[in-house]
């Protein structure tokens, strides 16, 4: 249940950024979460509901950009979508992959007032 730690870190970042912008209200928060980031979305949702209560993010609209995982095969150079680390290259069947995207876990932007 590390998702709670993750949500707490997001609240810290949002608060820091809102303070820096001299804002009192956060209207929106935009997050990038890759499908290989290690976040279980059901747990994240559960943790979010509990953790934002009474925080700067309580009334904020949350937008999540789900970043699809992509990899390049180091044997045949094919680029393709993956769901798991153990997915083979669909062209040559090898497992030696360079992960190009999908590990993102970041606060992209805020709308404050």
């Amino acid at each position: 249940m590390h998702e709670l730690s993750i949500v707490m870190s997001i609240i810290d970042i949002a608060k820091q950024q809102a303070d820096r912008a001299c804002a009192t209200i956060i209207d929106e928060i935009e997050l990038d979460i890759g499908t290989l980031s290690g976040i279980e979305m059901d747990s994240f949702e559960f943790a979010w509901k509990q953790a934002v209560r009474g925080s700067v993010l309580e009334g904020a609209v949350r937008k999540i950009n789900t970043i699809e995982a992509k990899a390049r095969c180091l044997d045949c150079d094919a680029v393709f979508s993956i769901h798991h680390y153990f997915d083979p290259c669909p062209v040559c069947g090898e497992h030696l992959l360079d992960i190009l995207s999908g590990k993102e876990l970041k606060v992209k932007s805020l709308v404050v007032s």
């Binding site: 970042i13 950024q17 912008a21 209207d27 606060v107 992209k108 932007s109 805020l110 709308v111 404050v112």
Partner: peptide, 8 residues
């Protein structure tokens, strides 16, 4: 309203 690019 202000948009803050965080990218963190």
């Amino acid at each position: 309203k202000t948009i803050v690019d965080v990218e963190q």
